[in-house]
Design a protein around this nucleic acid. Structure first.
Lengths: 79, 79
DNA sequence: GCGGATTTGTACGTATGTATG
DNA sequence: GCATACATACGTACAAATCCG
């Protein structure tokens, strides 16, 4: 759960939490991370904030996203 | 003016239009690009879409942003 | 092929916080 | 104090892609 009163923005807290779950191995390579709506409920944030957090992970190269499928840990298999 | 019916998203149309204005020299280095609210009115999009477009230009290294000041063409003078 | 469910993508709106001038 | 501008966060709605029965 994200702390809405913390000085660090919710989307960063969420991104860090997910990065930790990946680093710890609880989310493994090529496995899907929770959907945006799941993150919304699990962490008590809006979908926009969840999307923002996932976008950060994408910029860091930790995950890749496929429309209609989901977001996965690691780098895209092909291309 | 952005075409909301075009297959290419509004924020990409806007980013491309701004990139063109920079490339053509109508927006010159270290000069501020129009504010988000200006872009909003000039191109008939919402502020969120204007912000999205500017974020793209930032990722491409075409502009840099200073909170409370504005967004400028080129790279940050210092640092 | 079709329809429904799921998931991400786009676009809009509003409110509030923070920083600068 | 006020105006401007960016940052964060919430909400809604619909589109597009995918998957499955």
């Amino acid at each position: 759960m994200v702390d809405p009163f913390a000085p660090v923005p919710a989307y960063i807290q969420l991104a860090d939490a997910l990065a930790e779950r990946i680093k710890s191995g609880s989310l493994r390579k090529l496995m899907p991370i929770p959907s945006e709506t799941s993150l919304q409920q699990e962490y008590g944030v809006s979908r926009g904030t969840a999307r923002h957090a996932v976008a950060l992970l994408r910029e860091r190269g930790l995950v890749f996203t496929v429309q209609g499928r989901g977001t996965y840990v690691g780098k895209p298999p092909n291309a």
